[in-house]
Structures are given as C-alpha cells and as structure tokens.
C-alpha cells in the first residue's frame, strides 16, 4: 500500500498541503461561473433591448396634412373659418391670413370655435382667438400652423407649426 505524503512534512511544498475539501485560495470556479452568469445576463439584456426596438415604428404611415382651401369671400375679421374635415381654424384680417390648430394642447381633443375663442369639449380648456389659454388644464397655447398664399387660395400644412403670431399677406 502506497502512503500519501504526510501533511506538514518538511519535504512537501506548501501548495500540496491543501486538502481537496479546503476552499481554493483563488475561487477559480467562482470566477468562471460568475463570468458565464454575467455574460448570459448581458446577452439576455441586449437581446431584450433589441426585441423592444421592434414596436418603436421607424416609418410613420401618416398621410400628408397639407391642403389647399379657398377662403369665403365675406369672412368677417376675427371670425374663424374651419375647412370641413380639418382641424385648423383660418382667420383673415386686413389682407393677412393665419391658421390656428384646433387640436387641444391638453389631451388632443378638437376644440370648438366660439364667440370668444375656442372651447374644448373633453376637459374644459378655454382659448382666446389667438390660441392663448384662458382657462382649464391646457398647458400651452394652441399651435399656429404654416399658411402660404397660392393665387387667390391658401395652402395650409397642419403638420408644420410656426411661431405664434406668424401671419401671411395674400
């Protein structure tokens, strides 16, 4: 029967003294295990981010919201003209035209033109004729949108907003 070298005997190097049951001084397996764990975790994380990228549309399928309209001949100054099916109010005064969007800046309902300005049916915001907020929860004034003259008509682009107070002469 062969005898294993006596533990602690002077001729055995220190590294051989450790029993296989003792913990290793450098947790090599722990290191490999942790590395594998973190590699898998980060792979899953990045894969999830990649999956989450899918529902965020890159191309918006919305149609152009540019249209041409003929203003009524007798549009009194300060009275809003809302082209049918559009969410924009056109004003004409002293040879100048401008357009105020009728999409409420609060939660996107369509405001209705009234004697004093605009009223929102959903949450009761009120706006003056120039779109500024007079009451209710709307955080900002109604947007003004781009208008350009085209002969006797005007071209309105609901999709493009302009600074408040931008008027165009026709």
């Amino acid at each position: 029967m062969t005898t294993a070298p006596e533990h602690g005997s002077p001729e055995t190097p220190a590294s051989a003294l450790r029993s296989r049951l003792d913990p290793e001084p450098v947790p090599r397996r722990d290191f490999l295990g942790l590395a594998a764990l973190w590699a898998s975790a980060s792979t899953v994380l990045f894969a999830t981010l990649g999956i989450a990228r899918l529902p965020k549309a890159a191309v918006l399928s919305s149609p152009s919201r540019k249209f041409k309209v003929t203003l009524p001949e007798a549009l009194p100054a300060g009275e809003a003209f809302v082209p049918p099916g559009r969410s924009v109010a056109l004003f004409k005064e002293a040879g100048e035209v401008w357009a105020v969007s009728t999409v409420c800046t609060h939660l996107g309902c369509i405001v209705k033109s009234s004697a004093t300005g605009f009223d929102c049916p959903c949450h009761g915001s009120g706006f003056a004729k120039d779109g500024s907020v007079t009451r209710g929860p709307a955080p900002t004034a109604l947007k003004w949108v781009k208008v350009s003259a085209a002969g006797g008509d005007v071209i309105v682009d609901e999709g493009e907003s302009v600074p408040l107070g931008t008027k165009v002469s026709v």
Binding site: P84, G85, R86, S87, C109, I110, K112, P121, C122, H123
Partner: peptide, 19 residues
C-alpha cells in the same frame, strides 16, 4: 369622427374620476 369629439366626451364610469 376624427374632426368632432362628442360634447361632453366621457370615458366609461370607472375612468371618470381620472377624467
């Protein structure tokens, strides 16, 4: 009708507190 919301435009009852 994307041009005209109802007036008033109300949610179902359980969201009216939120509205």
């Amino acid at each position: 009708n994307p041009g005209v919301p109802e007036n008033p435009a109300k949610a179902p009852w359980y969201f009216l507190g939120l509205q």
